[in-house]
Amino acid sequence: MIRQTRRFVLAGALALTALPASAQNVSLLNVSYDPTRELYVEINAAFAKEWQAKTGQNVRIRQSHGGSGRQARAVIDGLDADVVTLALAYDIDALHLNGKLIPADWQSRLPNNASPYTSTIVFLVRKGNPKAIRDWNDLVKPDVGVVTPNPKTSGGARWNYLAAWAYALKQPGGDDAKARDFVRALFKNVKVLDSGARGALTSFTERGIGDVFLSWENEAFLALKELGADKFEIVVPSLSILAEPPVSVVDRVVDKRGTRAVAEAYLQFLYTKEGQEIAAKHFYRPRDPEVAAKHAETFKKVNLITIDDVFGGWTKAQATHFNDGGVFDQIYAK
C-alpha cells in the first residue's frame, strides 16, 4: 500500500510540475489577501493581453486568496507564489524573516514603498445613518454597536485599531493614556469579532449585527455595489490612516521557476496608467496623480496619517499592540 501511495503522490506531483515549463506558455501564482479577488481578475486579464503583445508569450496568472497573515504563512510553508500582494508590509517582512524567501530591502525595489495603490479605513453605516455617526468619537457612545474583525487575526482590523488610536492621539490634549482609554471604550462597543474582513462584513450586512462597520474603503464601496446602495452608506471620518498594501516578487520562487522577468513586469504593470485605472475602478486609491485627480469625486479627501509617522513602522506597532500580551490583549481582556 505504501508503494501505491507513493506512486500516486509522485504521479500527482509530476503532473503538476510539468505545467509551467513551456516557452510559449508561462504561469504565475499571485498569492493575495481576501478583498483583492475582483481587482486581480481584471488586472490579470489586462496584463496577459499586454504581455502577449510585447513578447508573444501566453501568461496565465493563478490566484490564491485568504487572510493576509495566513497567506504569508502558506508561502513560507512552501506555496510556490511568484508574487505576493498582501495587506501589510509586516506580512511580507515575514517572508524575509522566516526562510529568507526575499531580501530585507524588498520594499525599496518598487516605487511608493512597493505599494501601487492605497486605501484607508472608513465607516459603513445603515442607510440614513440612524445613529448619526460622523466621526470616531461617535463610535464610543454607549448605544452604538461596532463591527470589526479581530486585530489578532485580520490585517484590516489592525488598521482599524491603529486609526482609532491615532484619532484619539491627535485630539487636543491627546496622549497614549487617553488613546488607550478611547480604544478600550471603542472595543467595549464591538458586538462580534470575526477572524477576517469578509466574515465581519457578512455579520454586519447579512446578519444585521451592529450599527457601524469599520472597513477598508474598497470593501465598503464593494459592499455598496454588491449589496445595494439603498441599504448602506459610507461615512468618511475626519482623520484616518493611510493603508499601503504592498507587493513583492518572491525571489526564491521566481529564480527557481525562471519567471523573474514576467513576475517583475506584472508588478510594474500595477503602476502603469492602465493598472492604476483598474485599481481605481475597484476602489483602491491610485498613486498616479493624474489618475487620482480623475477619481477625486469617489475618493473623499481625508486627513491621512501614516503608520511610520505615528507608530514608528509595522514591526514596532505589531510588537507594542498586537503581539501576545500587547496593548490590545490588555484592553480587550478587561
Partner: peptide, 8 residues
Amino acid sequence: IRVIFAVP
C-alpha cells in the same frame, strides 16, 4: 516534488 499546496 510538491506535496503540500498541490493535489497530493
